[in-house]
C-alpha cells in the first residue's frame, strides 16, 4: 500500500514536469487575453475601446474639462509642426517616407516592433532617429521637442486604427517581451512601487489629485500634451517621470529597459484604437 502511494506520487511529480516547462516560456497571446480580461472583470462598466481615454473613464477626473479642451486641443501645434518636419526634405532629397512602410502614414500602431537584424525592440522614436542617421542627420532627444512633434503627426495619421504589436516567435523577441513584462511588474525605488502598483492594482483610484489611468490602453494616447509639462511628450518621457516619482533613478531614454517596457505594455493593448496625441493634466 505504502509502495503504491510512493509510485503514484512519483508518477504525479514526473507527469507535472512537462506541464510546468510548457507554461514557463513567454506566451504573449495568453498574457494579452488575461490582461484585457482582468480589466474587463474589474471595471466592467468601461467599454474596451474607451480604455484609451485613461483616467477620464472615472468620476472626478475632469472629464468635462477634457472634452472642452479637445475642441481646441493643445497638441494641435505639435501636429502642425510634425507635419512640416515629416514633409521637409533631408539634405539628400529624401524624406521620412523613405524609411517607413506605407510611407509612414497610419503605421504608429505597429510600434514598438522587433527588429530581427539587430535583435532589439524599435520604438517609433528610435525608428525616426535611425532614419535621420541613415540620411546624414543627427539623432533627436527621444522625450520631447521635435521628436514628440513628429511622433504626434505620425500618430494622428493612425488614429482609430488598432494597435497591432507583433511579438514574433524569435527567442530574442520573446526575451525582450519578457524583460518588459518583468520591468512592468517589478517594484523599484525607495517607495517600492511597480508600474502595476498604480496602473493595475490601483487603476481608477486617486493618487492625491490625480486619477490613475489603467494600464490597458494607456499607451494609445501618446504622445501626450500634459498641462504639468506645458508641452507634448513621448511615452518614454512618462516612464522617466514615473521612475522619478517612486524615488528611482531613471534609465536612459533609448535604453533596452524602456524599449522592452514599451513593447510589453503596448502589446497588452493590442486591438484597441490609436487615440494619440492626447491631453492629460
Amino acid at each position: 500500500m505504502r509502495i503504491g502511494l510512493v509510485v503514484l506520487a512519483l508518477l504525479a511529480a514526473f507527469s507535472a514536469v512537462p506541464v510546468a516547462l510548457a507554461g514557463a516560456g513567454p506566451d504573449p497571446a495568453a498574457d494579452i487575453k488575461a490582461f484585457q480580461g482582468h480589466f474587463r472583470t474589474e471595471l466592467p462598466a468601461i467599454p474596451l475601446a474607451a480604455y484609451v481615454n485613461g483616467p477620464y473613464n472615472f468620476p472626478g477626473s475632469g472629464r468635462a474639462q477634457w472634452k472642452q479642451i479637445t475642441e481646441f486641443p493643445p497638441y494641435s501645434f505639435a501636429i502642425d509642426s510634425g507635419k512640416v518636419l515629416f514633409e521637409t526634405k533631408f539634405p539628400n532629397g529624401k524624406t521620412y517616407t523613405s524609411c517607413f512602410s506605407e510611407g509612414g502614414i497610419g503605421i504608429a500602431g505597429n510600434y514598438p516592433m522587433f527588429d530581427p537584424k539587430t535583435g532589439r525592440v524599435v520604438t517609433l522614436g528610435v525608428a525616426i532617429n535611425r532614419c535621420r542617421v541613415a540620411n546624414g542627420l543627427k539623432k533627436w532627444p527621444l522625450t520631447k521637442g521635435k521628436m514628440a512633434d513628429l511622433v504626434a503627426y505620425m500618430t494622428v495619421t493612425s488614429r482609430g486604427r488598432p494597435i497591432d504589436v507583433v511579438v514574433p516567435n524569435d527567442p530574442r523577441a520573446l526575451a525582450a517581451y519578457e524583460a518588459g513584462k518583468e520591468y512592468f511588474y517589478s517594484r523599484r525605488g525607495q517607495l517600492n512601487f511597480s508600474c502595476a502598483s498604480c496602473h493595475v492594482q490601483a487603476a481608477g483610484k486617486r493618487l492625491r489629485g490625480n486619477v490613475l489611468a489603467p494600464a490597458l490602453g494607456i499607451t494609445a494616447s501618446f504622445p501626450l500634451y500634459r498641462s504639468k509639462w506645458g508641452s507634448i511628450g513621448t511615452l518614454v518621457r512618462r516612464f522617466i517621470g514615473c521612475n522619478k516619482k517612486v524615488g528611482s533613478v531613471p534609465d536612459k531614454p533609448d535604453s533596452a529597459a524602456y524599449r522592452d517596457l514599451a513593447y510589453f505594455l503596448t502589446a497588452m493593448s493590442n486591438g484597441l484604437p490609436i487615440a494619440g496625441p492626447g491631453s492629460r493634466p
Binding site: D31, E182, Y185, S186, R187, S194, A196, V200
Partner: peptide, 11 residues
C-alpha cells in the same frame, strides 16, 4: 523582485 514580480503579474 527577481522572483516576487511574478506574484504581481496578471494571469
Amino acid at each position: 523582485q527577481k522572483a516576487l514580480w511574478q506574484s504581481e503579474a496578471v494571469r
